[in-house]
Design a protein around this nucleic acid. Structure first.
Length: 783
RNA sequence: GCCCGGAUGGCGGAAUUGGCAGACGCGCUGGACUCAAAAUCCAGUUUCCUUUAAAGAAGUGUGGGUUCGACCCCCACUCCGGGCACCA
């Protein structure tokens, strides 16, 4: 059994606190971890603190950086300009959650989308496997469905449209409904599309520029889903529909995203809701090219968005949609302007932050000549086949990785965590760390202000971006297996012995992002032979969270926090543990209710009194010779069974109820056998370890209760020869009676007819039908 | 807006997944013990009708449906929560 704990301690909240207080995030992290660790221990959680990990520990993030180098080496990391929230007033990049209604959360300043140089991970290369391998996982179906939708595999077609005003150029679009291509009345490209400048005519330039500026301030979410009101602007240019040769206008609209498909669509207003809304607004034609399959059906209202039969489509008329798609794909393929293809909604993963408190990238940016030299002198460097480049200050730079032997690359101590104002992280304000002479073979460096140390040294600039918090949390479950290993992220032996987590418990808020990112990393590690399995989390359970008394998430600013220290002080650890379990189902979000805690506290006190007298001796009702009543004995075995099953199924709340029922019966019993009490204490021990250990000892046991083998229930003791059967007339409850097990239907009907409660409802009626469920119910339908 | 959940007494929740709705606990009411209180114990506690009891009737967010029988399955809605790619 491996039951570990660790701290995912990089990230925004700590950094913001550091900015505010000027204290080093590492120092703050250390304090917070100490508090959490103390509280967890006081709750009596049996984590193995020997295996504790901390993602901000250089000994840990050395391996985070190592994994990242493997991704880099395999061509799964690249650099691109990506739009992020930029706040000119604060001079910093903001997270989505820090932007509220287009204003910064701090100071309420206006924000805009600005493209910045970012590291991106090619998770889309694994889209098919991430989708296909979901099938074998023992996860909640809802979570699997969410991941499926997120990956968003969609089969369709790519088609290239000639451009009337740019001879030789083509506009490539993606569509899932190529069968509607004869109904295209305009094209739409995303505001960020590369062809925008060349397609925009002088007459339209002012309008287009204004539109692009406005679109730049919206998030993708605002642009597509929330916006019922579609907006757009005409470029002034035209494309040619390759299906029928028609000249059609090219528009720019922000409901088309540059990040999905080709960033351009063919618009078929008659058969697409978004296109229809747009066409109505801008008065564009909506010709019908799909009719219902059944010709007898009256013409449906537009937009008609389901499959049907092609009409007004030249030689393709009459084909069903599916067949039409196949033929059109072949048709365009033969012309070299299209093909059937698959698109994913999943986008590559923006994997950098312009922040201080994260893992530094083990990358030095050098010029092309130095890059060639470095590769020649240091052949072991983990470089991709195709060099990763970017333009910094107008110069093309090459990404040169640190050798694995030089890891970890540590964060320099900075004077200020304040934003630089340029969009770069605070690391950019550390010239001694940033601008260096660098020896590629060893990873050694000296500040560039000093003389060049030798011939095999090159001039370099370190990467100022840091990794997002996901990085450390993507693989921590592997580090628990072998937390102190300095040769590998975990030894082969440890991995073979422990495998992957048997049960992964995590909140539903991680359903897509964390759980998808970690699966991606794990698959890459599998591909390079660093882990023996294809999937990290075979069985998954989402626990809920305890909300504040007001039903809102607990937060200091809201003042609705319940502190475990206070509860432990007044009621003790076992009461807190038991109450947390009794509060409701583990997976539910439930508010903290301090009043109910009295109930479980009384329950534990009652158990104490049943075992121990006021003077501290063993309660005289307990003896080795007492014979328990059959009822108490049966209840004990039912309790052992139910608690065992409930623990297996993570239904702790109902196991507490069952134990309460048992103790109520125990209390009423005049005599009780010691074995019965001991067995009960054992099933309670996992939830209330402290009090049960104490009572176990007071009842004369020498070894720890934790060492004793789990009690077994005897199925024979659970059997009953009597069972209650419910009588219904026309589905209405009219009485019940204890009857022998194995009663036949005829006998049951006879008993019902003789029952004083049931008989009146049968008087003068004809029995139409009898439904008999043995041992449960007899329903007589009368008329 | 899209994807995923949820809604049961005054409150937290239970119901073997289509077979007695409300287990268990909190709270409340009444009683016992006590000079008194605390603690503890006993009884009651979905709503309505009924003097009370017996006996009825209604009842699991709303409106329909399937079924001998629906908290559970289907359809349409309402409200609340999670996620929507830089909180993680």
């Amino acid at each position: 059994m491996l039951y570990p704990i660790g701290w995912d301690a990089f990230g925004l909240p700590t950094e913001n606190y550091a900015v505010k207080t000027g204290r080093h995030p590492a120092e703050v992290t250390k304090e917070n971890v100490a508090t959490f660790r103390r509280q967890l221990k006081s709750v009596g959680v049996s984590y193995d603190f020997e295996r504790e990990v901390d993602t901000t520990d250089p000994k840990y993030f050395r391996w985070t950086q190592w994994i990242w180098l493997q991704l880099f080496n395999r061509g799964l990391a690249y650099v691109e300009e990506k739009p992020v929230w930029w706040c000119p007033a604060l001079g910093t990049v903001l997270a989505n959650e820090e932007v509220i209604d287009g204003l910064s959360e701090v100071g309420k300043h206006p924000v805009e989308r600005r493209p910045l140089r970012q590291w991106v991970l090619r998770i889309t290369a694994y889209a098919d496997r991430l989708l296909a391998d979901l099938k074998g996982l023992d996860w909640p179906d809802s979570t699997k469905r969410m991941q499926e939708a997120w990956i968003g595999r969609s089969e369709g077609s790519e088609v290239e449209f000639d451009l009337a005003d740019l001879p030789g150029e083509r506009l490539k679009i993606f569509t899932t409904r190529v069968d509607t291509i004869f109904g295209v009345t305009y094209m739409v490209i995303a505001p960020e599309h590369a062809l925008v400048p060349r397609l925009t005519t002088p007459a339209q330039k002012a309008a287009v520029d204004a539109y692009i500026k406005a679109a730049a301030s919206k998030s993708d979410l605002e642009r597509t889903e929330l916006a019922k009101d579609k907006t757009g602007v005409f470029t002034g240019s035209y494309a040619i529909n390759p299906a029928n040769g028609q000249k059609i206008p090219v528009w720019i609209a922000d409901y088309v995203l540059a990040s999905y498909g080709t960033g351009a669509i063919m618009a078929v207003p008659a058969h697409d809701e978004r296109d229809y809304a747009f066409a109505k607004k801008y008065d564009l034609p909506t010709p019908r090219v799909i009719a219902p399959l059944d010709p007898a059906t009256p013409e449906p209202e537009l937009p008609f968005c389901i499959y049907g039969r092609m009409v007004n489509s030249g030689k393709f008329d009459g084909l069903a949609s599916a067949e039409g798609k196949t033929q059109l794909d072949a048709h365009f393929s033969a012309q070299g302007r299209g093909k059937g293809t698959v698109q994913f909604k999943l986008r590559d993963w923006l994997f950098s932050r312009q922040r201080y408190w994260g893992e530094p990238f083990p990358i030095v940016w050098v010029n092309e000549a130095d890059y060639r030299t470095a590769l020649a002198t240091a052949k072991h460097l983990p470089v991709p086949e195709q060099a990763v480049t970017c333009v910094i200050n107008g110069e093309t730079r090459y990404a040169l990785p640190l050798p694995e032997s030089a890891l970890p690359l540590q964060l320099p101590v900075v004077k200020s965590y304040q934003p630089t104002g340029t969009g770069e992280s605070p690391l950019a304000s550390m010239p001694e760390w940033l601008e260096i002479w660098y020896q590629p073979a060893t990873g050694a460096s000296v500040p560039a202000s000093q003389p060049k140390p030798g011939d095999d040294w090159v001039r370099g600039r370190r990467e100022t971006n840091t990794m997002p918090q996901w990085a450390g949390s993507c693989w921590y479950y592997l580090r628990y297996l072998d937390p102190k290993n300095d040769q590998a992220l975990a030894s082969k032996e440890a991995q073979a012995y422990w495998g992957v987590p048997d049960l992964y418990v995590g909140g539903a808020e991680h359903a897509v992002l964390h759980l998808l990112y970690a699966r991606f990393w794990h698959k890459v590690l599998f591909d390079i032979g660093a882990v023996p399995t294809n999937e990290p989390f075979t069985k998954l359970f989402h626990q809920g969270i305890i909300l504040g008394e007001d039903g809102e998430k607990m937060s200091k600013s809201r003042g609705n926090v319940a502190n475990p220290d206070d509860i432990i002080k007044s009621y003790g650890t076992d009461t807190l543990r038991l109450y947390l379990m009794f509060l409701g189902p583990l997976e539910a979000m439930k508010p903290w209710n301090p009043r109910g805690i009295e109930g479980v506290h009384r329950f534990l006190q009652k158990i104490w009194r049943e075992c121990v007298t006021e003077e501290g001796g063993v309660n005289p009702k307990i003896s080795d010779t007492a014979t328990d009543s059959p009822e108490l004995e049966k209840l004990l075995h039912e309790t052992i069974k139910k608690v065992g099953e409930d623990i297996e199924n993570l239904r702790y709340n109902t196991s507490v109820s069952q134990m309460m029922i048992f103790v109520n019966a125990l209390q009423k019993a005049p005599q009780v056998n010691r074995r019965t009490v001991l067995a009960f204490l054992q099933v309670l021990a996992p939830l209330a370890p402290h009090i049960t250990e104490e009572l176990w000892e007071r009842l004369g046991q020498k070894a720890s209760i934790m060492q004793a083998p789990w009690p077994q229930f005897d199925p024979a003791k659970l059997a009953s020869d009597q069972v209650k059967i419910v009588f219904q007339i026309n589905g209405k409850h009219r009485g019940d009676q204890l009857v022998p097990v194995g009663l036949t239907e005829a006998e049951a009907v006879k008993i019902a007819q003789e029952s004083p409660k049931v008989a009146p409802h049968l008087a003068g009626k004809t029995i139409k039908r009898v439904i008999f469920v043995p041992g449960k119910i007899l329903n007589i339908v009368v008329a």
